[in-house]
Structures are given as structure tokens and as C-alpha cells.
Design a protein around this nucleic acid. Structure first.
Length: 186
DNA sequence: CCCTGATTCGC
DNA sequence: GCGAATCAGG
């Protein structure tokens, strides 16, 4: 019945629901399945949404007016070879544990032992020397021991911690599951 | 390094 | 109308 790739009423409603629910475009796209995050965003804008939790009166990002958007004439012959270093799409939080429930929310505050090594399948533990700006700085073990390490996961910009630890550090009571096993599209 | 939404433009 | 490509910010 429903053709993938076509915005049916159900799709649009789900889109609106998820969008208003606070889910990001990529998450919604992953949930919808056959669409990319760009498609979701595009549809959202087209529907007249966007802004989601933003005030219509408050132009947070005055991209318009202040930015003529630039007219690069867009060269259609750009193969986009800027991602050769990636070697693969590591999309999604590799450090994210698929399920972490109740325990974290019941924690309320950081225990004397910030975290257990067992809670995360981490192998990326790094010392302060290996710590990079984009790496999660979550204390692991006792700082008194020479084996003190940091999480080292990829942190959101501005966030000293990775997505996982960020949610632990804060307690937004938002249990949003991350990306599904989205199929790799051509 | 990553991901986020916003916008533009070809189809 | 749709979505990839691109930009800009975090």
C-alpha cells in the first residue's frame, strides 16, 4: 500500500509527531526508513514546520537577511572527495549503549566512583595525552591511580562528554533511542 | 572528529 | 513537491 519514498499521510503525521517530540531529523529519518535526514528536513520545512521548539518571534539564527546564502553557482562536477579519510560510515554513536535504563536516572548524582569500565564496551580509553578536543572526558577509575583514563568517545561540540556520558551527567529524563540499524543507501 | 538544522537548487 | 547538495553553527 504505502510506497516507500512517498510522503503519505501517515508518514507526515509521524514526521510531525517525532519532530515535535524533539527527535532530530536523522533519528526521524532512521525511524521512517527509506528517507534521509535531508528529506525529512526538507519535508519539515515544506510543511511549514521547522523551529520546533523555537519562538517564531525570535530569530535565533538570522541566516536570512544577514547571509545572501552565497551563490556558488554550485559546480555539478564535484565528486566530493573530502571524506576519503573516513573509510566508512561510522554513523551514530559508537559509544552509545543501546540500553541503559532506570539505573542512570535513579543515580541522581555522581557516585564516588563515576563509572565502571564494564558499563561501556569501550576500548578507546585514552589518557589525557591522547585526549583530543572532540573526545569525551569522562573520568574512569580513580584519579589517584596511574591507570586513570578518560572515555575518549566522540563528544558533541561544546560537550565535554560523549552522548552517553552527557546524558548521565545531565538528567533530562529523555530516553530517546538512537539510530536504528539503518541500511546503507547508495 | 562528530552531528545538528537551514537553505538553495536541480529534477 | 521532492531530495541531494551545500552551508553554517555547535
Amino acid at each position: 500500500m504505502n510506497e516507500a519514498g512517498a510522503w503519505t499521510e501517515e508518514r507526515v503525521e509521524l514526521l510531525k509527531k517525532l519532530w515535535s517530540d524533539g527527535l532530530s531529523a536523522s533519528q526521524i529519518a532512521a525511524e521512517l526508513g527509506s528517507v534521509t535526514r535531508n528529506a525529512v528536513i526538507g519535508k519539515v520545512h515544506r510543511l511549514g514546520l521547522s523551529g520546533r521548539a523555537k519562538n517564531p518571534a525570535a530569530a535565533s539564527t538570522p541566516r536570512t537577511a544577514a547571509t545572501p546564502r552565497k551563490a556558488p553557482t554550485r559546480s555539478p562536477s564535484h565528486p566530493m572527495n573530502s571524506q576519503g579519510s573516513q573509510g566508512g560510515m561510522t554513523r551514530g554513536a559508537n559509544a552509545l549503549a543501546p540500553q541503559y535504563t532506570a539505573e542512570v536516572e535513579a543515580e541522581t548524582e555522581q557516585a564516588p566512583a563515576p563509572s565502571e569500565d564494564v558499563v561501556i564496551p569501550f576500548s578507546e580509553r585514552v589518557t589525557i595525552m591522547d585526549l583530543r578536543e572532540y573526545m569525551c572526558r569522562w573520568p574512569m577509575g580513580d584519579p589517584t591511580t596511574p591507570e586513570f583514563r578518560f572515555c575518549g568517545g566522540r563528544s558533541q561540540t561544546g560537550m565535554p562528554y560523549c552522548s552517553y556520558h552527557a546524558r548521565i551527567a545531565y538528567q533530562p529524563a529523555a530516553d530517546r533511542r538512537r539510530d536504528r540499524g539503518k541500511v546503507a543507501r547508495a
